[in-house]
Simulated scan of single mutants.
Amino acid sequence: MSKAVKSILFSPITIRGVTLRNRICVSPMCQYSADEGLVNDWHLVNAGSFATGGAGMVMIEATGVEARGRISPGCPGLWTDTQIEPMARISRFLKSQGAVPGIQLAHGGRKASTLPPFVGHDSIGDDKGGWPTIGPSAIAFGGPIGKVPKEATIDDIEEIKEAWVRAAQRAVTAGFEVGHILVIELHFAHGYLVSTFLSPATNKRTDKYGGSLENRMRFGLEIARNIRHTLPDNIALGVRVSVTDYADQGWDVPQTIEFARELKALGIDFLDCSSGGVVGGVDYNPLNTNKIQIEIAGTIQREVGLATAAVGKIVDPHVAEAILQGNGATLIFMGRAFLNNPHWPYIAADQLTDEQAFKYPPQYDWCIGWKGMAKWRKAVLLAEK
């Protein structure tokens, strides 16, 4: 992209009263480093580095709405009030650096009670520190995640829906809100609990939560509706969804589009378009999956009129810009690029714009900020003379 074309990536955007300084968002990335659901210094430094690096929004990793919903023993949670202040500490720092704090609420379902991936990612036996899991049907994910979940009863479903609402309330009312600037994302993707209710490959129920598309969407829509109703109007609420299972007789793009329409009608503000993770044995080709995710983000934005986030190994600033310029999404969600370089936006700004894209932290601004670089360029020119 020529620098003569105004960069959308570095244009601010307001979604339901929440203004992001740019469209660069840090995807929620599990760190598996919490203790009894409590975040700690690792989480503060990890997320904080992305905020000082210039991201418009930094989203805290999948946070369990109940202890049973943790993916691993090291996953954070908001199922009790004691977990609020450590999370609020991170949120306050993100806000102080100009980034919008976000948090992803999640329930692991049948993929809960597992080892961290850097240990093995296998199911943990109940006699070895694990816990019973739950799902729409008593079907294990398979492979190393072999624990068979309990088939959720109607009472279980009601209890879990309430857990989602209470976790959202804790995120807002007890410190994470930080001056009414907050984004909450509901994790309905990757084979975790709500995702398995959506997919006919994993949902074999015969009651009102299974069978037809309307029934399979019911659980997720009820959670989204209940949370939207309990949140202040100026809190942005998004949903992450797997746009396809990559499996025969599974969840697919047409169903995703219909789900997006229903979510928009409930007041959901954006859809984070990921894919896969729902059934085992899928041979993922990153080139294909990333292309599908980005294409569907554009399709939903155009056909449904719902803001979308494109995600999937986006590491090149020009690629990110082209997605936005081509009406492919509203936001760019990135993970690995930030792990490689928490200051990725600095490099992107140098490549995409001649203007001051954002305010650097004062500790950096005097040296590499707009004024600092101007002084450096002037010194170089004088030296060349």
Rank of each mutant, 00 (worst) to 15 (best):
G335T: 06
L339T: 07
V315M: 13
G305L: 11
I300N: 03
G298P: 00
V311G: 03
A310T: 02
L339N: 10
Q356E: 15
V315D: 10
D316W: 05
A329V: 05
L324S: 04
L324M: 04
F338I: 05
L306Y: 03
T353R: 05
I323M: 02
N340V: 05
R336M: 08
A349I: 07
G298W: 02
A320G: 10
V315C: 12
F358T: 04
I347G: 13
D350N: 14
P345V: 06
A329Q: 09
G305M: 07
E303K: 10
I323P: 00
N341S: 07
Q356M: 15
D316R: 11
I347M: 14
V311N: 08
I300G: 01
T308F: 02
W344S: 08
A337E: 05
A310D: 03
A307D: 08
P345S: 10
G298H: 05
G298I: 05
P342K: 10
G305W: 04
I332D: 00
E303M: 09
A309V: 11
G335R: 05
E355V: 12
A320I: 03
I323S: 00
V319C: 11
H318M: 14
A307M: 08
D316S: 11
L331M: 10
H343M: 13
N341Q: 05
N327L: 10
E303H: 06
I323F: 01
H318G: 09
V315A: 14
A310K: 06
E321Y: 04
A349Q: 05
Q325G: 09
A307I: 00
Q351V: 11
F333D: 02
V319T: 13
I332R: 02
T330Y: 02
F338A: 07
F333Q: 12
Q325R: 14
D350Q: 15
G335V: 04
K313N: 15
A349P: 02
P317E: 03
T299C: 09
G312K: 07
G335Q: 06
T308H: 07
R336V: 06
V311E: 00
Q325D: 12
T299R: 15
A310L: 09
P345L: 12
R336L: 12
G328P: 02
T353V: 08
P345K: 09
T353A: 08
H343D: 10
T299G: 01
G326W: 05
A309N: 04
G298L: 08
T308R: 02
V319P: 01
G312N: 06
H343E: 11
Q301S: 11
A348D: 00
A349D: 08
L324C: 06
L324Y: 03
A337H: 01
A357K: 07
M334Y: 01
R302H: 11
I314W: 01
L352Y: 01
L324H: 07
